[in-house]
């Protein structure tokens, strides 16, 4: 195999790991990183997006619209959860663990009872392409593009729209924002909904490639928390570079020694980062800037 194919295959595997880390972590970066709610129901928002988008495809909707429907459904579910459960707990981050863990268990078991142990998948679209003796799934390249597109849209939303401005202001100094006439309750609700919708988007995007079961969200959780903890509070200075670094570690170790090595590598990276950068990559960057 020539050097070009070797590089391409590594880039593909890196992109694949990067996309999975970014998409699983984006929603959590908003809810946990920005808002400080330790959301153990993150996986269930992902599952919600996957189930809704798959059902929509079964009902005849084209896949891209179905994925958006999944994100919207998860977003609405997120706003309801915020209103009913999370709102009294903003000053009590440890209590959010118990509350969201409870939601996670209720949703997982409720889905098992109501919808059964699994849902028929829709199959991965677009087929495959071959390069240098390896065949690759085209859909996974689309997932990489979707990950970059999601980051770009989020950046535009937080820096170029009024919602983004109010959201950042509310989360930084809620009392001042409120004094300036901002409806902070609404902003909290919308921001939490955005985080849930991003989780739903990840679920919708990965639904065609995965087994659809009530516990599917759990397989995103480790990667999501690892990425957010390594990244710190800021999505663009934190989540994106963290996903890139972790993606390289994961792709290299998995290619070299298999999946177990990849998982170990991710966890060792977190331990090191927590030790030397307690507030994550973005905490370090922002501190130096200040």
């Amino acid at each position: 195999m020539d050097i070009f194919n070797l590089i391409f295959s590594f880039l593909y595997q890196f992109g694949d790991a990067f996309a999975f880390l970014v998409l699983s972590a984006c929603g959590l970066a908003v809810i946990f990183g920005m808002m400080g709610v330790i959301n153990l129901a993150h996986g269930e928002f992902i599952m919600c997006g996957a189930y809704v988008s798959t059902s929509a495809v079964h009902a005849g909707l084209p896949l891209p619209l179905a994925i958006i429907a999944g994100a919207v459904a998860a977003g609405i579910a997120g706003m309801i959860v915020e209103l009913v459960v999370i709102r009294p707990l903003y000053q009590r981050p440890l209590d959010t663990i118990v509350a969201t863990w409870g939601i996670s268990m209720i949703v997982t078991q409720g889905t098992l009872i109501v919808l059964g142990p699994s849902m028929q998948g829709v199959g991965t679209p677009f087929g495959s392409f071959t390069m240098g003796g390896y065949s690759y799934s085209i859909y996974r390249v689309i997932l990489m593009i979707a990950a970059i597109g999601t980051l770009a849209l989020l950046w535009l939303m937080f820096t170029r729209t009024r919602f983004g401005l109010l959201s950042r202001a509310t989360i930084q100094v809620p009392h001042v924002a409120e004094a300036m006439g901002v409806n902070t309750n609404l902003i909290y609700s919308l921001t939490f909904g955005l985080g849930a919708a991003l989780a739903g988007l990840a679920g919708g995007l990965y639904a065609p490639t995965m087994t659809l079961v009530p516990t599917m969200g759990a397989s995103f959780m480790v990667e999501a928390f690892v990425t957010v903890v390594v990244g710190g509070a800021d999505i663009f200075l934190g989540t994106a570079p963290a996903a890139a670094i972790l993606g390289i570690i994961k792709a290299a170790l998995t290619g070299w020694q298999g999946q177990l090595a990849g998982q170990i590598g991710l966890l060792i990276a977190v331990i090191i980062v927590i030790r030397i950068l307690p507030r994550g990559i973005s905490g370090k960057i922002l501190k130096e800037r200040a």
Binding site: S9, Y12, Q13, D16, A17, F20, G133, Y134, S135, S137, R140, M210, T211, M216, A218, S219, V222, A251, T254, G255, G258, Q259, L260, G262, Q263
Partner: peptide, 20 residues
Amino acid sequence: EEFIPLGVSQFSQTIQNIQA
């Protein structure tokens, strides 16, 4: 031969290892 930790759901690299 490759051993996969329980709960892993992403197999892109494993598939490539098999092809190799």
